[in-house]
Design a protein around this nucleic acid. Sequence first.
DNA 1: TTGCATTGATTGCACGTGCATGTAGTGTCC
DNA 2: GGACACTACATGCACGTGCAATCAATGCAA
Lengths: 138, 138
Amino acid sequence: MSELDPAADAALVAGWRDLLARHAATACALDRELGERHDLGMSEFEVLERLVESEGSDQAMLRVQELACTVHLSQSALSRLIGRLEKAGLVTRAMCENDRRGIFVTLTEDGRERYERARPLHREVLARVLGGATVGSG
Amino acid sequence: MSELDPAADAALVAGWRDLLARHAATACALDRELGERHDLGMSEFEVLERLVESEGSDQAMLRVQELACTVHLSQSALSRLIGRLEKAGLVTRAMCENDRRGIFVTLTEDGRERYERARPLHREVLARVLGGATVGSG
DNA sequence: TTGCATTGATTGCACGTGCATGTAGTGTCC
DNA sequence: GGACACTACATGCACGTGCAATCAATGCAA
């Protein structure tokens, strides 16, 4: 199975390039516009969004490791990202009582407001760049 | 127009997250496996591939600027990437006679061989990560 | 209790990237 | 010819990232 039909091979590569192009265009626009207008990077916004979503559930806090999976960052990158958010006053770190190794990340009021203000732009960029034509699974 | 229906908003975000997940999984796997087994990064491979494809046309060379568009890198990043490839002996830089500002990038024999050896793995990773069971969309 | 492996998060380091700038070459206008 | 704006590529710099090493805390076993 290491060799593919030329047609299947071409389709695979075409799909991958399409994915690359969409990702590059969206991530670039998101990073630039969120950065300019809300002083937030793309990943920072994603982390804030996950924290906001977690407020809907019974857990108002998230562990660093859980966040790392959802935003596709290494734990070290996320550790520093949370450090930046904390320094900016958007989140706070709290120790987990049950497991002192774990760190709970919680949204501050400023963090929530910053997210709420940035969200419309985020959605607007998504709509503009992705154009509603999201690629399927194949 | 800045506000969207909740359903449209959710679909947009879901599509974007799916795109992010696919990209992260594929790029990560590609970088790691190509790096380990062929000492090539994902973008390096992409550049070599564009150069190979350009051999099919009348132009056996590509300008740096043309490459930058196709691999979604800034001009400076591509300049350094080509520097790495050149240092590794995979490409050469040649001045354009017509326009001395332009730099033609050409594939060497080593570069072509490296690409040919790496391509099956590249396609295999694509088929495995994109074609088969991708990550569960969180 | 002590000892050891494992997990959760942080830190040292090297590397790739983008932005802004620098350098060289081109074309135009006077 | 000289001055100017513009293009193509390279470079200085700051920053975010991943890997590996590290520290802290837990669980298990003897």
